[in-house]
Nucleic acid binder design. Structure first.
Length: 723
DNA sequence: AACTTTGGCGTATTGA
DNA sequence: TCAATACGCCAA
C-alpha cells in the first residue's frame, strides 16, 4: 500500500508538505509540488513573469487559465489582476493541490484509523471570577489530551510564569510526539485554543501545534448556522485538522431541534454518551481552581470525563465530514466549516480544470415555485397512513436528465448518477457487512452521500452556485407538484381521506387499508413514471390535522408534533405546555383535557404565582444590539421586543444569541410589547413584575384558536370578565 | 466570510 | 379595528 494522505500544507514558498500514513499507523512527511492556478476573463491582460496563460475550450466567462511557477509570482499576478475583477481562484491552496492531483485526504483510511486527539484545558483565576487569559495572574491549570483510550494530562506544577511556560511547551512536545491528524474539542476555537494562544503570546512560547514543526495561525471567522451567525477565532494548524464539536452540535441541531443546551454535559447526556449524572464527575466553574489545589484526583477525573465526552460527541458527528473529504478536494477542517455549494462547485471545477474547459460565472436565478403543500382536513382522524416518494427531487433530476445551462462539459447528471450508485452500494454494504465497525462506517458513508445528493436540487436554485440553473430547478418542482397531485387523485379514488400533503408525502385516513398498506401502495403505484418510487412510511392510530405543515401524530406509543405553530422554541413555555396537553388529549394519549390547565394558569397568573420563566418568550437576535441601536437612532422601524430587551442587558448579548423577555404592565404612552419588554435576567417581582393581564389575554387567544377542537365555541369576551 | 431551495403559520408592528 | 408587512421558526 502506498499510504494515504492525512495532512496537506502549502508553505510560503509554494512547497506542499504532506503527511502520509504508514503501515504501522504513524505518518511520514513528504514534499510535493503545486502549480498554483487561476481562471481569467478576457479583460485580464496583465502579463507577469513566471505566469503561463493558456486558452480554454468551450463557451464560458473564464476563457483562460493561468499557472504560476512560484507562489510569489502567483501572488503578484493575483494582486495585479484583482482590480479588473476578471480573475477567479480556488482557496485555500491546499484545495488547489488536491484538485490538481485528483487527490483526496484519508481516501483509503477508515475512521478508526484516523489519529485523533481530544483536547480540553482547565483554567484558574485568582479572584474566583471567570478565568480570563488577559488577566496576568489567571493561568492554564492543566491541558488534557486524549489519544485513543489513553489520556495524557499535562499539569501546571507551580503558580508561576515559568511553570506555565513549561506547561505550554510540553503541549508542543506532546503534539509533536503523538502527531495526531485531528484535534477535537468542545468550543475549542472560542475557548481552549484562544486561551492557549493568549497565554503563549504572553509567555513567549510558540503555538507550535501544527505538523512539519509549524505554528498555528489565527484569524477571526464567522459561520452561519441556520438563522444565526457564529463568530469565532478560527485556528488553522498546518497539516492537521481542528474540529470544534460545539459547532458540529449546532449544525446537527438545525434539523433535529431537540437540544436544550449546546454545553458538553447536556450534549453528552442527550446522545447517551453519559447515561447517568453519577457516571461522571461534575465540578462547577468556580470550584475548578479549588479542586485543582485540594482535590487533584477529582480535578483530573473531571477533566478526563470532558475528554471522554468530547470524543463521544465527535464519534457521532465527525464521520459525516470524514466521509465528505473522501469525495471533495477539501481539507477536513474546511468540510466542517463550509456549506454544500462550495463543495459541489469544487467537484465541477476539478473536471473543468483537467478538461481545460472554459468556466462560467454563477447565473442569475429568478424566483421559482416550490413544492405543493396543502392541508385538506382539520380535526382528529383515525387509521392514518403516511406515504412518501423516495428521494423525490434527485429522482426527478435523473428522470429529466438535463444538465444545467452553464455546464458545457455535461458534468452534473453523470455526477449525480455516480453518486447515487455509490450511495446505493454503501447502503447495501451497511446492511450486509459482517463487521459491526464496517457497517457503521458504511452507514456514515451512505448518509453523507444522501445529504450530498439531496443538496443537488438546492444547489441548482442557489444564485451563488457556479453551475446553478433556476429553470431546471423550477422544472423539478413543477414535476414534483404534478406527481403529488396525481397521487392524491389516485388515493382518493381508493376511498382514502387525504389529510395533508407536503412536497413529497401524503397523510391519509383509511379504515379499509389500514392493516394492509402495501396493498394500497400497489394499487396506487401504477401511475408512477419509471424511476419514481412511492414508499409506505408508517401508520398512526390518530392524527390531529391542524393546518398546513402543522399536525400531530400518535402511533400508540409516541407522539410526534410538527409545525411552528405547535412546537416553536419561541412560544411561551406555559402556552407550549398547554399545546402539548392539547395534543395528548386530542390524539387519545391522555384523558386530561387542557381546559383544566387553562383555568389553573388563569388563577396563578392573577395572583402572579407563575414563575416568570413560564411566561417569558425567547427569541434569537437577528441583529447585533449595537446595530439595532444605530438602526432606531435613525428612526428605523419596526421596533422589536427582543431587541429592546437586549439593549437593557449588560453585557449586551450578541447577534445569534437567544434572549428571553417578559412583558411588564402598561404605562402611559407605553402600550406596545416592545415598549414593555424586559429581559428575564432583569426580572424583579416587586419593582418590575410581569403583566398578568397580558398573559391572560394570551390564554384567551389560545382558547379562541384551539377551543373549537375541544368542543368549546368561544363566544368571545366572556373570559375577560372572569378577572 | 460565507452563502442549498420554497411554502406556511403565528405574532408583532405600523399606519390608517 | 383592520390591512399590509416583517420576521421567527419550522416542514420538506
Amino acid at each position: 500500500m502506498k499510504g494515504t494522505l492525512c495532512g496537506v500544507w502549502v508553505d510560503d514558498d509554494g512547497r506542499v508538505h504532506t503527511a502520509v500514513s504508514k503501515a504501522d499507523g504513524t505518518r511520514e512527511t513528504r514534499i510535493e509540488t503545486l502549480r498554483p492556478f487561476a481562471w481569467l476573463r478576457d479583460v485580464v491582460t496583465a502579463e507577469t513573469e513566471g505566469v503561463t496563460i493558456e486558452t480554454l475550450k468551450g463557451e464560458g466567462t473564464f476563457t483562460r487559465l493561468a499557472h504560476a511557477d512560484t507562489l510569489d509570482a502567483f501572488d503578484v499576478f493575483l494582486k495585479a489582476a484583482k482590480d479588473t475583477g476578471g480573475i477567479d481562484t480556488i482557496k485555500p491552496l491546499e484545495s488547489q493541490f488536491l484538485l490538481q492531483n485528483k487527490a483526496r485526504l484519508f481516501a483509503d483510511l477508515s475512521f478508526g484509523q484516523l489519529r485523533r486527539c481530544q483536547l480540553d484545558i482547565e483554567t484558574g483565576s485568582t479572584d474566583g471570577a471567570f478565568s480570563q487569559a488577559t488577566n496576568p495572574d489567571d493561568r492554564v491549570l492543566a491541558i488534557g489530551l486524549r489519544f485513543g483510550d489513553r489520556n495524557r494530562i499535562l499539569v501546571l506544577d507551580a503558580m508561576t510564569d515559568e511553570a506555565e511556560k513549561r506547561l505550554l511547551e510540553s503541549l508542543n512536545t506532546a503534539l509533536a510526539e503523538e502527531d495526531p491528524d485531528v484535534i477535537e474539542g468542545h468550543n475549542i476555537f472560542k475557548f481552549d485554543l484562544d486561551y492557549l494562544r493568549q497565554r503563549a503570546k504572553r509567555l513567549k512560547v510558540p503555538c507550535a501545534w501544527g505538523r512539519f514543526g509549524q505554528k498555528a495561525s489565527f484569524r477571526n471567522s464567522r459561520l452561519k448556522i441556520a438563522e444565526r451567525m457564529v463568530d469565532f477565532p478560527r485556528c488553522d494548524l498546518p497539516g492537521r485538522t481542528v474540529v470544534d464539536t460545539y459547532l458540529l452540535v449546532q449544525q446537527y441541531d438545525i434539523t433535529t431541534r431537540e437540544l436544550t443546551s449546546y454545553g458538553l454535559k447536556a450534549v453528552a447526556a442527550y446522545f447517551g454518551i453519559t447515561e447517568d449524572d453519577d457516571e461522571r464527575t461534575y465540578l462547577a466553574g468556580d470550584k475548578i481552581h479549588e479542586a485543582f489545589l485540594h482535590d487533584r484526583e477529582k480535578f483530573i477525573a473531571y477533566l478526563s470525563d470532558d475528554l471522554r465526552e468530547t470524543r463521544g460527541v465527535a464519534d457521532l458527528l465527525l464521520p459525516t465530514y470524514f466521509e465528505q473529504v473522501k469525495t471533495f478536494p477539501i481539507l477536513l477542517q474546511e468540510a466542517t466549516l463550509r456549506g454544500t455549494t462550495s463543495k459541489i462547485d469544487l467537484l465541477f471545477l476539478e473536471e473543468y480544470y483537467h478538461a481545460r474547459q472554459a468556466c462560467p460565472v454563477p447565473p442569475e436565478v429568478a424566483p421559482f415555485e416550490g413544492g405543493y403543500t396543502r392541508s385538506f382536513q382539520e380535526g382528529v382522524f383515525k387509521h392514518v397512513l403516511h406515504f412518501d416518494v423516495a428521494s423525490l427531487y434527485p429522482s426527478l433530476l435523473m428522470s429529466i436528465g438535463r444538465n444545467p445551462k452553464n455546464d458545457t462539459l455535461g458534468v452534473f447528471i453523470p455526477l449525480l448518477k455516480a453518486l447515487r450508485e455509490y450511495r446505493l452500494k454503501y447502503k447495501q454494504l451497511a446492511r450486509t457487512s459482517e463487521d459491526a465497525d464496517l457497517r457503521a462506517e458504511y452507514q456514515a458513508r451512505q448518509t453523507s452521500f444522501k445529504i450530498l445528493i439531496n443538496s443537488f436540487y438546492g444547489y441548482l436554485g442557489f444564485s451563488g452556485a457556479r453551475f446553478g440553473d433556476g429553470e431546471l430547478a423550477a422544472e423539478v418542482t413543477r414535476r414534483g407538484r404534478e406527481l403529488l397531485q396525481a397521487l392524491i387523485d389516485e388515493f382518493t379514488k381508493h376511498d382514502c381521506t387525504i389529510l395533508e400533503a407536503d412536497t413529497d408525502g401524503i397523510y391519509l385516513s383509511t379504515e379499509r387499508y389500514f392493516d394492509e398498506p402495501d396493498t394500497l401502495l400497489a394499487k396506487v403505484a401504477g401511475i408512477l413514471p419509471p424511476g419514481i418510487e412511492l414508499e409506505y412510511d408508517g401508520k398512526y392510530t390518530a392524527m390531529w390535522s391542524y393546518k398546513a405543515k402543522n399536525y400531530a401524530l400518535y402511533d400508540g406509543k409516541k407522539i410526534t408534533i410538527r409545525g411552528s405553530a405547535l412546537r416553536s422554541r419561541g412560544i411561551e413555555p406555559f402556552l407550549k405546555k398547554l399545546g402539548n396537553q392539547l395534543v395528548h388529549f386530542l390524539v387519545g394519549a391522555s384523558a386530561e383535557s387542557p381546559l383544566g390547565l387553562v383555568d389553573d394558569y388563569r388563577a396563578r397568573l392573577a395572583s402572579r404565582q407563575m414563575p416568570v420563566a413560564e411566561v417569558a418568550k425567547s427569541e434569537v437576535l437577528g441583529m447585533n444590539p449595537d446595530a439595532y441601536e444605530r438602526f432606531i437612532a435613525e428612526g428605523g422601524k419596526p421596533r422589536r421586543a427582543s431587541a429592546e430587551a437586549a439593549l437593557q442587558m449588560n453585557p449586551r448579548p450578541r447577534m445569534g444569541e437567544r434572549v428571553a423577555y417578559y412583558i411588564t404592565p402598561k404605562q402611559k404612552g407605553k402600550t406596545s410589547d416592545w415598549q414593555r419588554a424586559r429581559p428575564v435576567a432583569l426580572y424583579d417581582a416587586t419593582t418590575a413584575p410581569y403583566d398578568p393581564g397580558y398573559y391572560t389575554d394570551k390564554l384567551d387567544d389560545w382558547l379562541e384558536r384551539y377551543g373549537p377542537f375541544l368542543g368549546v365555541t368561544p363566544p368571545g369576551g366572556v373570559q375577560g370578565e372572569l378577572l
